[in-house]
């Protein structure tokens, strides 16, 4: 094989079959970044790494090389516990949940009535 590009010819590219072995791509870590002090850490994606320290390094390259970032967390994907989307109905709110919302408590009418009755 002859390339027009001498750089390619110098490395002697490999023409015969080659394969990546299972496990060579390591395992996924979930990445969370904090844009500025005071913000929450937000999930931005994942990286593949052989250990947590290496995962942080890859996370910095992958998710911290452009936008503002002051801190990052990585968590092994295998260690994350989550709900199943099939169970989404557990998040459905009962129709009457006013008692746990600010809008469920209205005092202005009572105050006005009191003021009117006691001028």
């Amino acid at each position: 094989m002859q390339s027009f590009d001498p750089r390619v010819n110098r490395i002697k590219p490999i023409e015969e079959k080659t394969e990546m072995n299972i496990g060579e791509a390591w395992e996924p870590y979930e990445v969370f970044h904090q844009k500025k002090r005071g913000d929450h850490h937000i999930h931005v994606g994942s990286v593949h790494a052989p250990n947590a320290a290496q995962a942080l390094l890859f996370a910095k390259e992958q998710y911290g090389r452009r936008q503002n970032c002051v801190n990052m967390w990585v968590v092994k994907t295998a260690d994350v516990t989550q709900f199943q989307y099939d169970d989404a109905d557990i998040f459905e709110t009962a129709i009457d949940k006013e008692y746990r919302e600010a809008y469920g408590f209205k005092v202005r009418d009572k105050i006005n009535a009191y003021k009117k009755a006691n001028p």
Partner: peptide, 13 residues
């Protein structure tokens, strides 16, 4: 760097 006993894990999202 690889861990020979590693099982396949899918990224979450």
């Amino acid at each position: 760097l690889m861990n020979p006993n590693q099982k396949q894990v899918l990224p979450l999202s």
